[in-house]
Computed example of a mutant assay.
Amino acid sequence: MKKDLFGICPYVTSQKVLAGKWSILILHLLSDKESIRFNELQRMMPEEMTHATLSRQLKYLEQEGMIIRKDYGEIPPRVEYSLSGIGEKFRTVLDELEKWGQEYISNMKK
Rank of each mutant, 00 (worst) to 15 (best):
E48G: 08
S14M: 15
P76K: 08
N107I: 00
M49K: 05
Y11K: 14
K99D: 14
P77F: 02
E98M: 04
M66W: 05
G101S: 11
Q57A: 14
E98T: 03
L27Y: 02
K70L: 09
V79S: 10
L5G: 08
K33D: 11
K110S: 07
L83Q: 03
K99P: 01
R78S: 14
D71C: 04
G87D: 11
K89C: 09
S14Y: 10
M45L: 09
G73E: 12
E34I: 06
P10E: 09
E96W: 00
D71I: 01
S23R: 10
E40A: 09
Q63N: 13
E40S: 08
K16S: 15
L41R: 01
S31W: 05
M66D: 10
G20R: 07
P76N: 09
G101C: 04
E96N: 00
Y104W: 02
S31F: 05
K59R: 14
S31Y: 05
D4W: 01
K110F: 01
E96R: 00
E64L: 03
L58Y: 06
D71R: 02
Y60G: 06
F90R: 01
V17Y: 13
L29P: 08
W22K: 14
S31C: 06
K59E: 15
E34H: 09
Q42T: 03
G73S: 06
V79R: 11
F90G: 03
Y60R: 07
E74R: 03
H28D: 15
K21T: 13
I67A: 11
L54E: 10
I86V: 11
K109C: 01
E34L: 07
A52S: 11
V17P: 14
L61G: 10
S82N: 03
M1A: 14
G20W: 01
I26G: 10
H28L: 14
K3A: 15
M66N: 08
K16V: 12
I86T: 13
D32K: 11
E48N: 09
M44I: 01
F90C: 05
N39Q: 12
E96Q: 01
E34S: 09
K16Y: 12
V93Y: 01
K3E: 15
P77I: 03
Y81H: 04
E96M: 00
G87M: 04
Q15R: 13
N107V: 00
F6D: 07
F90N: 03
S23I: 07
E47N: 11
S82L: 02
L30R: 04
S31Q: 05
I86A: 13
G20I: 08
E80P: 05
R91T: 03
S55P: 05
L30C: 06
L30T: 03
N39K: 08
L41K: 01
R37V: 10
A52Y: 07
H51G: 01
T13E: 12
E40W: 05
E80I: 12
E103L: 00
L58M: 09
K70F: 06
Y72S: 08
R91D: 00
Q15W: 13
F38E: 06
